[in-house]
């Protein structure tokens, strides 16, 4: 995407379009990465509810994995995940390992 010059920016940095967060990818901020362990998932969708961005992918009402373009690695999904019989369906792993 070509960056705009100063003559083209909106006064006061006001964002005049809805849904513009889609264009703002923040995955590079991440130090820890959530890993999805499908066999421990009970499809409660707590991860999708609690994710502060839009990093949890849901298809046909089911959690199917992560969109890492928007995941900052906050770990809320892993914390909230109830898992199955004491085993988490989401665990945080250090990036680059």
């Amino acid at each position: 995407m070509k960056l705009k010059g100063w003559k083209k920016v909106n006064p006061g940095a006001v964002v005049t379009e809805g849904g513009s967060a889609l264009e703002f990818k923040t995955g590079s901020w991440r130090a820890f990465k959530p890993k999805f362990i499908e066999e421990n998932c009970i499809q409660c969708l707590f991860c999708w509810v609690f994710c502060p961005d839009m990093a949890v992918k849901v298809k046909d009402g089911k959690m199917v994995g992560f969109n890492y373009d928007y995941c900052k690695g906050c770990g809320i999904c892993a914390l909230e995940c109830p898992g199955k019989k004491g085993n988490k369906a989401i665990v945080m792993e250090e990036e680059g390992k």
């Binding site: 100063w6 006061g12 006001v14």
Partner: peptide
């Protein structure tokens, strides 16, 4: 016409807003 005030503007755009 929904708008947002106060977005995060990082090094790729902050200087353009100051110049404006």
């Amino acid at each position: 016409h929904p708008v947002s005030y106060g977005p995060l503007i990082l090094p790729d755009y902050y200087m353009e807003y100051r110049r404006a």
